[in-house]
Design a protein around this nucleic acid. Sequence first.
DNA 1: TTGAAAGCGCTAACAC
DNA 2: GTGTTAGCGCTTTCAA
Lengths: 358, 358
Amino acid sequence: MKPKSASIKDVAAAAGVSRATAARVLGGYGYASGQVHEAVLGAARELDYAPSRMAKAMRTGQSQLIGFVSADITDGLFSEALGGICRIAEPLGYQVVVFNSADRLDGEREGIRNLLSHGVEGLIVSPVVVSQREHLQAAARAVPLVCLDRAPEGLPSVVSDNAGAARRAVQSLVEHGHHQIGLVSSVQAEEPIVIDSSDQILRVLGPDRPSVLRARGFVDGMHDAGLPIGPGQLCFTPHLAEDAQLRVTQWLEAKDGLTAVLAADSYQARYVYRALRLLRRRVPEDLSLIVFSDAEWTEFVVPPLDTISLDGAEMGARAAGALFELIRGSAQATSEVISAIHRPGQSVVTLSAEATAT
Amino acid sequence: MKPKSASIKDVAAAAGVSRATAARVLGGYGYASGQVHEAVLGAARELDYAPSRMAKAMRTGQSQLIGFVSADITDGLFSEALGGICRIAEPLGYQVVVFNSADRLDGEREGIRNLLSHGVEGLIVSPVVVSQREHLQAAARAVPLVCLDRAPEGLPSVVSDNAGAARRAVQSLVEHGHHQIGLVSSVQAEEPIVIDSSDQILRVLGPDRPSVLRARGFVDGMHDAGLPIGPGQLCFTPHLAEDAQLRVTQWLEAKDGLTAVLAADSYQARYVYRALRLLRRRVPEDLSLIVFSDAEWTEFVVPPLDTISLDGAEMGARAAGALFELIRGSAQATSEVISAIHRPGQSVVTLSAEATAT
DNA sequence: TTGAAAGCGCTAACAC
DNA sequence: GTGTTAGCGCTTTCAA
């Protein structure tokens, strides 16, 4: 039923040579006479020989495996990233081992430990939080490690320019005549956005994770334009909260002077959309809506929505590229952000409607 | 820089015992005195010992790895499936190695070969085509294998009830007063849908792949309702064809008697949507539109669209469940379809509008 | 040009 | 209870 696949020993025996000779021929190194060469290759074909990478890895330390620890592989951004990683890894003969940390820090720790025990040669991680990074640094001491989408300090990371994109989105809205602009975002329980309005000027504090950076970029954009901005223009709901829809709806109802809204992710955009339907308002006639979203979603979403398109495939590919450079040793691990990504041709927000409010 | 992680030998040395004893303690089998037990555990903690699964796999043949060969990991259905697979595999201590076949049959072959060489204990494959299955059968001889979303004959598979869902969708439309219903679908180059209209009755021929099954269910549903149906009601475009949008638009323009359309996937739904915008018609006021789509897309898509929601997570979880039963040996490989999946509460299509046409 | 042998880290049968 | 030992499949040094 389960015919144990042929090993190099079987091939050697069939070809009537020693294991070492067979290995040399099959491995393509060392010397072998034409005679022997053919015999070995013939035997290998005959027996349908496939080398065991485990054994090879055991001996050489090269497992040809890299690990991807993702907060949610189901999320469009990360599944695109996985696609990008595979696109780079597979032609190099590498396979990707996936671990879904399900947004739990201990899941992330466990995943990293598991993948390392499988002998992965490198690790791409989209960290659950950016402020706890001991386990990441420990892992980075064992194998090359690149962070994706989120950049804990001191670790090589590939992230998109969240703050810059939000800032430009606001700028774009302003150029189209909007003055009353709102932001809708989720906040993570572990690393919340902190708004400091004690001073004259509104400040966004908190760790450098995407939601915070987007909020910061938003506020900066408003400041750039010299527009007044108060805490009331910002709608924050806890990540995956039950009552998120309700809160967004109530907020939107209360702020009926708004002519434009920036949604920090596609969940928020959906809340806004539904709220507008309830309130009998429409996009873009009554409100311009810009949303951060992955390329896949952007591709399919029904217009008119303006999107800041996050190219997960490109992010994944670049992370993998950086990782393989580190594995090869052709680059040093740098603690800087490796690149900021926007989807070509869509990095600058396009708007489908002018502001209609006064 | 890269401190080679401690092996069981190091632990044994540090604890002053033999490798076997250390192994017994760490492996939790055999006997060891309390003294020794503690010493070994202490040493292991001290050295931050992590067992090498490669070595273990080498010895025992249990790599704790399963493989997932997907036609497009970026696709919502398959990324959901991967999530479902991980959800089952991870608590069991298994990791998932991914290979993206990019819809190429030789990619699929290569992926299977690669994953097997890594010693995966089982394989989940979403086959590119259902009619070429020698390589799948060969793989299934080496390790347990379960197919996902597509069911080549004779291999255990987890698929959704594509034909049944399409049939019920038509039935539902008919109950809402629609008579003129169209189908929009892509066709694969390798395994095309074949329409036989030579007889009085329209027949859908071709291999049992999702697109064909959906078309067949559609036609069956029309027959059930006693509605006339001709080839003109079916709009087929080659998969990923450049001019797909144009063809759908032209078809829709020509068939302006239609009051409802079934879209075989989310790409087609998008084409229909765009075509309607061009033609200044709207969903659902002018046309009811039902689309087959993954749950993620369904979740986000802006209403009003009626969806036949394919629950990729459930499919993945069931495939993984079946696979682990086979790995454990607690089940025999059956050649029947293991299950037909619909998303709870959404398996029956709901319509947002009655037919408005005569 | 080829073969013998060691060893990667682990498990398990067997001896003490 | 604990130690010795062989071996999973491969690479690689060294000797022939």
